[in-house]
Amino acid sequence: MDKIRLRFKKTGRAVYISHLDLMHTLQRGFSRAGYALKYSEGFNPHPQISIALPLSVGASSLCEIMDFRLKEDAELSDMAENLSRVMPEGIEMIEAYEPSRKVSEIKWLHVEGIMEYDERDKAEMCAGLEKFFANDEIVIMKKTKRGVGETDIRPAISSVDFMVSEEGVKVSALISAQEPTLNPELLVDALRQKEPRLCPDFAKFTRIETYDAAGKVFR
C-alpha cells in the first residue's frame, strides 16, 4: 500500500504536546490500534511518518495532516475511528485516505484566534487592530535562518478580520502556510514591536483549514 494521509485535530490539553513528542505519541497510538508502521531502511530505522507544517506548542488545530506508510494493507474507512480511540485527550482523527496531492501544495492557512485584554476596552482595541493591519507594509524584526532581520509580514497575510467577542477580540485570518511560513504568533509580535498599546495580554490561535494557491481546500 502506498502513502496514507490522516487528517486530525489537536485541541484541548493536547496542544502542549511538542512536535517531537507528538510523533512519538502517534507512533505508540498506531501500535496500540494494531497498525504496524513501515520503517525506513538503513542504519537507524525509524517509522516513516511525517506531519506537515509543525504546529507551535500552545496552538490548536482542526486541520493537521500526517502522511505515513504501513507494513501491510489496511482498511481506511474505519482507521480514523480506530486510532481516535487510543489517542490521548485532544487528539482526534478525522479521516484517512490515499493522498493525490503533495503537502508542498498547501499555500494558505485559515487561522482564528482570541486576543485577550485584561484592562483595555475591547471595542477600542478591535478598531485599532483593524487600522493597524490595514497598513500596506508591516516591517518587523524577525528571527530567520540567518539571524535576526527585518521582514515585511504584510504580504504573508492574505486577509485579516477582527471582531469583539466574549473573551476579547476575535481574529480570523488567511495567512501564508509556507514560502514564507507565517506563524500566527507573529501577528502579536508585530503589535508588540510596532503598536504596544494594542498588544494583547494573551493570545491563542487555532488552525481551521488548509488551502492551496488557488484558494481551494487542500486535501
Binding site: G12, R13, Y16, I17, G58
Partner: peptide
Amino acid sequence: MDKRLERILPRVQKPARYTGGEYNQI
C-alpha cells in the same frame, strides 16, 4: 483549563508534563 494556567504553559519548559490528559489516565 484554568485561565492562569493557560497563560503560563506556553512560557515554561516542556509544558506537556503539567497538563494531564495522557492516554489511560483515569
